[in-house]
Design a protein around this nucleic acid. Structure first.
Length: 266
DNA sequence: CGTGAGTGATCTCGAGGCAG
DNA sequence: CTGCCTCGAGATCACTCACG
């Protein structure tokens, strides 16, 4: 995919869009909205590990911009770690929800995103803050409950996202609430991948975070997938599953389910 | 020449538009 | 209605280039 920014001829500095602000968020004030939830996802394209959804709620009547926050991809790991507690204090409510690789396999990535987002939403609502609108990164609303779910049975939640969802392409680049959500989601998922790395150190998850690096794919080819791999994906172009699972034994569904990540952690 | 930052290529899946 | 293509999102990594 082409990048969002182009190099400016004759200059090293790119023609980067301005730092994200609350300008777009404040347009919701005219609709009488006070609490707006910025939502972003991380881990969508990874081969292993959970998909995670961050929510950062802003109070449009009182919130001030938080310096330094940008889309998590544009920040170094150290900057993200530094900003994570600041974002959580800055937000009137913040949460990260996860859906495991096994849930991605059984539900599909979009439904798994919804599951992770709903878990985060439950955490937010449990604090007593109920956002009146949602600002979602991208062009597709995967957060609202689907009318027609997949063939698989979807878990039923007492609290699902019932607020109107507004999608915006590149919202993480322009909208501070969404950028803030991307930071906390990325930090939390990275921590989880470092923990999973202790269990399966050969894959280099502390570095690649479950993404398809050369090392990751080489080990995957040699050792086979772990319970944390999204085996329904064409992990290695479809020639993966001949070797069985890493660790030398195959796991049944129940055993694989034990590898699930805790929901709504954070 | 070393370093740091940005670009482009790479991989994943799903949604939506369009042609047949 | 079906299949294909484009574009949306996520990320890492090799390469390029400006600067000190």
């Amino acid at each position: 995919m082409p990048p969002a920014v182009k190099a400016r001829p004759g200059s090293k500095a790119p023609l980067r869009s301005k730092a994200p602000s609350l300008r777009h968020e404040r347009t919701f004030k005219a609709q009488g909205i006070r609490y707006l939830a910025g939502v972003d996802e991380v881990g969508r394209g990874a081969l292993a590990g959970p998909v995670s959804v961050g929510i950062a709620v802003v109070d449009l009547e009182r919130q001030k911009p938080l310096a330094g926050v940008r889309d998590s991809k544009l920040l170094t790991p150290a900057e993200r770690e530094r900003l994570d507690p600041l974002v959580r204090r800055w937000s009137v409510a913040a949460a990260v929800g996860h859906a495991s690789a096994q849930e991605i396999d059984s539900l599909g990535i979009i439904a798994a995103l919804r599951l992770a987002g709903t878990r985060a939403w439950q955490d937010v609502v449990s604090t007593g803050i109920r956002p009146e609108a949602v600002l979602l990164d991208g062009s597709h609303n995967w957060l609202s409950p689907a009318e027609q779910l997949s063939l698989f049975e979807e878990p039923v939640f007492e609290v699902s996202c019932d607020a109107p969802v507004h999608t915006k392409v590149k919202a993480d680049m322009q909208c501070l609430s969404v950028a803030a959500a991307s930071v906390i989601a990325k930090v939390e998922r990275d921590r989880m991948m470092r923990e999973l790395h202790l269990e399966f150190p050969d894959f280099g998850w502390d570095i690649n975070k479950g993404y398809a690096t050369v090392l990751h794919r080489d080990v995957l080819r040699a050792a086979g997938p772990t319970p944390y791999h999204r085996v329904s994906w064409r992990l290695l172009g479809g020639d993966l599953l001949d070797g069985g699972l890493a660790g030398g034994e195959e796991l049944g569904d129940e055993e694989r389910a034990e590898g699930e990540v805790p929901a709504g952690e954070g």
